[in-house]
Amino acid sequence: MIATNLPEIFMHTRLSIRELADLYLDILGGDFDYFREIAYRMGAKDILDKKIRELSAGFRKIIYNAISLASKSKYILLDEPFENLDPARRVAMLKEILNSKSVNLINTHMTWMYEPFGRWEAYIMVEGRVYGPLEAARLKELRITKEKISDAMLSIKLSSGVEIYLSESTGIPLSSLDTLDKLYEVLTWGL
């Protein structure tokens, strides 16, 4: 079984979030009470009787994340689970994900979360190509440069022909970038 927070897999409905979650968790074999607990912990208690389309982007993300996590599927794929969340809710959501017993696969541009995910395997995707794996916590220590270096842990070739290198010794620390979106700009427009 696979669960995900992608909005595309959720039906457009005029029914409430409670009813939508109830349907999905029932047919996915999940736990509605657990969903409700997550929603309460994330401060989304009062929105369960609203419709999805009435929510802000952040609350939608919380609901989709919560349904995915409460599905207790073997694999849970979370697309940008922290996007549009305020700092407090980001931390709260991080705890929920770390408490999940499923195999989680997350994609994110956030660099602040390398450390909490510790020993998770991390892959970097640039222009559709996947590089890795690396230990998530180690990404924090990595630096990026265009100079060819001997101790590079990863080398990434861009479509422009430029090759860049990740190492522990040379270049800009990845952790100095707020998001990996900025990485591409830095790589493209010069280090």
Binding site: M1, I2, A3, T4, E8, I9, F10, M11, H12, Y24, I27, L28, G29, S73
Partner: peptide, 16 residues
């Protein structure tokens, strides 16, 4: 028609 992706997902990864 507007639920083709949810239907595809649910019929593949749920009990239905």
């Amino acid at each position: 028609y507007y639920a083709t992706i949810p239907i595809r997902y649910l019929t593949k990864y749920s009990k239905i």
